[in-house]
Nucleic acid binder design. Structure first.
Length: 241
DNA sequence: AATAGCCGCAACCGCGGGTCA
DNA sequence: CTGACCCGCGGTTGCGGCTAT
């Protein structure tokens, strides 16, 4: 028994929104408020799926939405938040006023991920050369010294057990206080540019405990200060318990 | 000028969690 | 307890504009 479709597709408009549709939706929401997406299209006189209306409103028509020109500061914040949260775009968006999760997701996929990939490649090359040189100086290489970074798959976060879209991350932790790299490979060069963000510390479950994240960061930071061969799996696994 | 390829972004889709009858 | 429904999320698609050839 399959899941029923969210709405009947028959006779509904799809594709780009027209000005008239935008106006109808905006006027309806201004008068009646958000929510009740299922019944909204009919009441607003729109031949659209409720999901489509919600998406259009949230990503485009909502007031106070900033469009285009993501600043370098915002980019850096996105990179850091992504290294912390993984692909939790709604959480990342909650930390960037006026930005939508869709916009951030698109920007990440089309710009930042490629840029980081390039930087990672460059960094890896440099590290390879350094390691080669080091091995030559120290004799044979030590294969057990490899740092292992675990990439847990991001999971959906319940709004109740977590946070709301609007206040989201503010209620958990003040990232303005984060003056250390968010993950092992999210290191900065002498120009304070993020060199690499590949080794994501993806946290699979975040409690509402006020100090939990800060404790985790502190623990993580201490780990990083320890010997190079720390197996990050151990720490990450501890987060997953 | 034509067109192929690329890129950015808006929109769609499927899934999972929460709620409620 | 169960199942239907609603909502929101992340992944993916497809279209339009831009650029290179």
């Amino acid at each position: 028994m399959g899941r029923a479709p969210c709405c009947s597709k028959v006779g509904l408009h799809r594709g780009s929104w027209t000005n008239r549709e935008d106006t109808l939706l905006t006027e309806y929401i201004q008068e009646h408020g958000e929510g009740h997406w299922k019944s909204m299209p009919k009441k607003a006189g729109l031949l659209r799926c409720g999901k489509s209306c919600r998406l259009r409103w949230v990503n485009y028509l909502r007031p106070n939405i900033k469009r285009g020109n993501i600043t370098p500061d915002e980019e850096e914040l996105i990179i850091r938040l992504h290294s912390l949260l993984g692909n939790r775009w709604s959480l990342i968006a909650g930390r960037l006023p006026g930005r939508t999760d869709n916009e951030i997701k698109n920007h990440w996929n089309s710009h930042l991920s490629k840029r980081l990939k390039n930087k990672i490649t460059t960094t890896k090359e440099n590290n390879k050369n350094k390691q080669k040189k080091h091995n030559q100086e120290m004799g044979s290489g030590d294969k057990t010294n490899k740092t292992k970074i675990h990439h847990p798959k991001a999971i959906r976060v319940s709004p109740l057990s977590m946070i709301t879209r609007t206040n989201s991350f503010d209620s958990m932790v003040s990232l303005g206080d984060l003056d250390f790299p968010l993950c092992r490979s999210d290191l900065t060069d002498s120009n304070n540019d993020v060199v690499s963000g590949c080794g994501c510390l993806c946290i699979n479950s975040i409690s509402t405990d006020d100090n939990m994240l800060e404790k985790m960061f502190e623990e993580y930071r201490q780990l990083l200060e320890e010997e190079d061969h720390v197996q990050l799996d151990t720490f990450v696994d501890s987060l997953l318990v």
